[in-house]
């Protein structure tokens, strides 16, 4: 398939645009102090999206970093491990959300039945 912009495939372009959007939004929040998240977390979000932006427009960066770090082809293993960690965090988050959800229901039930218990 012909590239939308010569040298940049369509999926890389979309990824780049999405990451620019998220970066701008996050930076806007930081500047306007319109966010309740802590500074390290804000920084983390900015770094992740900046990284995605970098890799989408300059994919060779990954190879250069890999060589500099002495990882060689092991970078794939590192990325795979990253995915596993992300999924583990996701499951932990779902578990926590479900627990909060159950507690909320229990609280609402107690409040609803308060009148009957008197």
């Amino acid at each position: 398939m012909k590239d939308f912009i010569p040298g940049i495939s369509i999926y890389r372009l979309i990824l780049g645009i999405v990451s620019v959007g998220f970066l701008v939004e996050q930076l806007y929040r930081i500047i306007r102090r319109n966010d309740h998240t802590s500074f390290p977390r804000q920084l983390g979000i900015v770094l992740v999206w900046a990284g995605i932006l970098l890799f989408s427009f300059f994919p060779d960066t990954a190879r250069i970093i890999s060589l500099r770090l002495g990882l060689g082809q092991n970078l794939n293993t590192l990325i795979f491990s990253g995915f596993v960690i992300v999924f583990l965090i996701l499951f932990k988050l779902i578990d926590k959300i479900e627990r909060i959800d159950r507690n909320l229901t229990e609280l609402i039930r107690k409040e609803a039945l308060e009148k009957l218990k008197k």
């Binding site: 909320l104 229901t105 609402i108 039930r109 409040e111 609803a112 039945l113 009148k115 009957l116």
Partner: peptide, 17 residues
Amino acid sequence: TAVRHLLNRGKGAAVRT
């Protein structure tokens, strides 16, 4: 006997209440 959930919690939650 009418009781009320302050927030919508779903059909299962309402039945249990």
